[in-house]
Design a protein around this nucleic acid. Structure first.
Lengths: 334, 334
DNA sequence: TATCAATTGTCTCACGTTGTCATAACCATT
DNA sequence: AATGGTTATGACAACGTGAGACAATTGATA
């Protein structure tokens, strides 16, 4: 591999002058600078980052520990946002796919310590509380938080999401929303329920009994909602005029279930949700109107926090906005 | 930060002996080893990877350049597979989200050169030909290939996918399959068509005219199939008994279109596809029977190739298998 | 001519780790 | 006790970069 010493020899100059050119020291004659720069370009010399890291005692590396890069495709946007900021700032990101509390987490942190990483971001795919791993590294929690609250944290503003979505559908004339909420172990589910009720109050409606909650167990299947709640509610005396699903992945089986009940989404009943999961939300027919979770922005904010000098523990909430498609039309006044 | 020198001072021994303990050199007296190891554990010392890299003149880092970590969730499995192998071998993976041929690609390669990465993996989300970037680094192409063919390459065996899927549905008694294929610019689409026809020949059927191809333009929308092909074919004299979709994302609008035509998937017409995109394929109702693209395995194979010593240019094909759900029942003999 | 600033070069050290080589300690055999 | 051999330990250099101290050279200006 080419080194600065090689460049110096080729340019018939001293190591020091080459170093000056590379580090943009203004005390270099323009002609010399150009001559050396040409040789650098010619040889394709790239500085050895290891040497630079050792010399400068800092690494420009930030770790990103994600609980499941695999399962949820929304978490990808967290990664993308973080990485875009990192690269814009000339930093490197190392991605780790871990399981919280297991060996994979410890190993990832050890690996980052070997690289003398300046910070790490701990991300989950659902907004919830997590135990903080023991580490000396500066840490930013993303989409999760710890009990103590003395760690920098970036979260979606789930209360706002619930409030704004509900406000919007009330504005469109809906009066009997039914909220098929995610499990209450997830902080996001609790906050959205708060927002839902608060928006109802603001409009003079009591929505406290308009929330259904998935029973325990893996919430992905949603069989409880689809097999029990929906058939009963939709065929009752006063069926809901709009369904709010806990996530886009829930809206899909809900669409199918409604079809089986002979109902047409967007005509007989509106459906909305949370996530804006691409490309699913767009491919559903009618297209799913849904509150977008601001994952990309959250990733950006988290990386900015990780790279910022002052590490005052802050809890930052990032807002999301409604993405309109056809599943939530303006309500015809009956 | 603690260094080996600090450990040596604390253990009242030499720098070299500490180094020996850390590198598990057997030429160390057990008593000394234990004494030093205790101090290492106590101080929480972690070796400085930068120094190690500089000393050994190699970096244990492999780059993974992906064209769209973002858009396609299937590409995540490529990343996961590669990363699992890398970590198992004690290597580090650096992930880059790039656009082929643009600055982001060059920058990523430069960044990897700075870290003296031992290899890089170039991945695309669709099986297709790509121009090879100029780099000195050992390169492995993943899910794509270059014209010259002198670079290590890992590809899905799309011909096998098409052949096996078709063979299976013929075995189940279907006789009028219709293949809604992806754009022919994608190598995978061409190979699957070959497999489709070959499987027909093996069963004494000429399937050459049973393939439809999306016209130019972004293939994601699939409006051509849904709006033009399907209504015409399904209401024709001899409608298909099974539809083969180019990808799971196409199967979703196809489900909706069939429903609009008053047809029930799995009863009136079977549907199959390629990908096994999670969690979509499972959440569709009926569950989508689909040829799984072996992305996780491909990621593993690519990383193994990247880490292997001998770099003989090989093109490796990875096979996929059918994932059975309800959308392709055994055909009732009519 | 003296003085000054700009430019370039020499020399040295430091970062943390590990390979090479040398030394020291110990044991067994003659 | 002398020899040879093994085991254990240590001294030192080197990887590539960056920075400081300071000298040498050049050209311009007072």
């Amino acid at each position: 591999m080419t080194t600065q010493r090689d460049i110096a020899r080729l340019a018939k100059t001293s190591l020091k002058t080459v170093s000056r050119v590379i580090n943009r020291d203004p005390l270099v004659n323009e002609a010399t600078r150009k001559r050396i720069q040409d040789i650098i370009d010619q040889t394709g010399y790239v500085p050895n980052e290891a040497a630079r890291m050792m010399r400068s005692q800092s690494s420009d590396i930030v770790g990103f520990l994600s609980e499941d890069v695999a399962t949820t495709s929304s978490s990808i946007d967290l990664v993308r946002g973080a990485q875009d900021v990192a690269h814009a700032m000339g930093k490197q990101m190392m991605l780790f796919n871990i399981r919280r509390g297991e060996a994979s987490e410890t190993e990832a942190l050890a690996q980052l310590a070997r690289f003398r990483a300046s910070a790490c971001i701990l991300a989950t795919s659902f907004h919830r509380e997590v135990p903080l791993p023991r580490t000396d590294m500066k840490t930013v929690l993303l989409n999760c938080y710890d009990a103590d609250g003395d760690t920098a944290t970036v979260l979606p503003d789930d209360r706002q999401l619930g409030y704004d979505l509900t406000t919007e559908l009330l504005r469109r004339g809906y009066r009997r929303p039914l909220f098929l909420n995610l499990a209450p172990e997830l902080a996001g589910a609790r906050l959205r329920a708060e927002g839902f009720i608060a928006a109802g109050q603001a409009a003079g409606l009591d929505l406290a009994d308009r929330i259904r909650t998935a029973s325990a167990g893996p919430d992905r299947d949603h069989t409880y909602f689809v097999d029990d709640i929906l058939p009963a509610e939709m065929t009752g005396a006063e069926p809901p005029d709009v369904l709010i699903c806990g996530q886009d992945l829930m809206a899909l089986p809900v669409y199918f279930a409604l079809t089986r009940l002979g109902l047409v989404v967007g005509r007989d009943v509106a459906v909305t949700s949370f996530d804006n999961l691409q490309p699913l939300a767009k491919l559903m027919q009618p297209g799913l109107t849904t509150m977008e979770l601001p994952y990309y922005d959250m990733g950006r904010v988290a990386m900015q926090q990780a790279l910022s000098e002052h590490d005052s523990p802050v809890r930052q909430l990032v807002q999301g906005q409604l993405v309109e498609r056809a599943s939530l039309p303006l309500r015809q006044s009956a």
